[in-house]
């Protein structure tokens, strides 16, 4: 405890709380002891599974002899065999294609509506805004399984009020649970569950903008719509980028909705989405090695998409400011 420096100086440089007067114990052991639960859980449930998946993805089962007995099956190094299998697997390609189509339907629609709702909530000419905000946000409280279940019933011609109306009018409507409609059916479930959350994110961002900016534009004769498009949207661009990123990551991982809908329709295979394929390979087919390789590919594609998207958007949205 040699306090040679002036204690006043230590105080004014705020963040380093105990610079210059800590022993090894207080400077290193205390913070790491307090971080320990977090670090242990991180290592056990995030780092280790990633390393383990990488390890599995480069292995395969080798069957010697008739494949009977304890020593007949052994795991051997497989090189990139599992990755080749995954990337040439037409089922995997098809599932990625379906999910991309699903994302192209869902993300622009969901974020567009969320932005529209957020801007309307922010407009002072809107009435009953509190009610609408709560109602639109409410589906976020409903987990994907339950919302898939509710909408799944509403898609059944015997239950759906829409079919009831169409039937009465004598119209013939293609079922949303048919092979062509099921992507839209799942997109609608995700839209229902996600639009409110994204709306709240954008609305929170709008609320943090000082209203003087709008007053000035208003005095210059800008209309409400002009203010929304020219001032509000660019200001909340970072929030929109983040919602887009989170939505894209979630889209590539869609699992709960199609899995829940499966009992209600014949149009959903066990490999409809990439993650369903991984699940099937790992648990139904007992092929954890190719399931691991497929997981790694999905994770890498997710990363690639996120980085590419952030780069493109950052250049366009934030580049002008410098």
């Amino acid at each position: 405890m040699t306090v040679t420096e002036a204690p006043v100086a230590t105080r004014s440089s705020t963040p380093p709380v105990r610079r210059g007067r800590g022993t090894f114990r207080t400077r290193v052991l205390v913070p790491y002891a307090m971080l320990a639960p977090g670090i242990i859980l991180f290592v056990a449930f995030m780092a280790a599974p990633i390393v383990y998946t990488l390890f599995l993805s480069f292995q395969k089962t080798k069957v010697s002899g008739l494949g009977l007995g304890a020593g007949a099956r052994s795991t051997v190094f497989a090189g990139i065999d599992n990755y080749v299998t995954t990337l040439t697997n037409t089922e995997f390609g098809a599932s990625v294609g379906r999910v991309l189509l699903y994302g192209f339907i869902l993300i622009p629609l969901m974020l567009g509506l969320a932005l529209l709702f957020a801007l309307l909530l922010d407009s002072r000419r809107t009435r009953a805004a509190g009610f609408s905000r709560t109602a639109i946000f409410l589906p976020y409280a409903v987990p994907a399984v339950i919302s898939s279940l509710l909408w799944g019933f509403l898609y059944l011609p015997a239950v759906s009020p829409f079919y009831f109306v169409f039937d009465t009018l004598g119209w013939d409507v293609p079922s949303l649970l048919s092979a062509g409609g099921v992507t839209f059916a799942i997109a609608n479930i995700a839209l229902w569950g996600g639009v409110g959350f994204n709306m709240i994110v954008m609305y929170t961002s709008l609320k943090s903008v000082p209203s003087d900016i709008y007053e000035a534009a208003k005095l210059d004769g800008a209309s409400e719509v002009q203010i929304a498009l020219r001032i509000k949207v660019p200001i909340i661009a970072p929030a929109i980028v983040m919602t887009a990123l989170f939505s894209m990551v979630a889209t590539l991982q869609v699992f709960a909705e199609p899995t829940t809908l499966r009992p209600l329709t014949n149009s959903l295979s066990t490999s409809w989405s990439p993650l369903m394929l991984v699940y099937r390979d790992a648990f139904t087919r007992d092929d954890i090695y190719s399931a691991a390789a497929t997981s790694i590919v999905i994770a890498l594609v997710t990363f690639a998409f996120s980085f590419l998207f952030l780069r493109v958007v950052q250049k366009r949205a934030f580049g002008q400011e410098d």
Binding site: M46, I50, V249, L252, Q253, L275, Y279, I288, S295
Partner: peptide, 10 residues
């Protein structure tokens, strides 16, 4: 950035 769902199987 790690998609949590990817971790479930390992």
């Amino acid at each position: 950035l790690v998609p949590g769902v990817i971790l479930a199987i390992p």
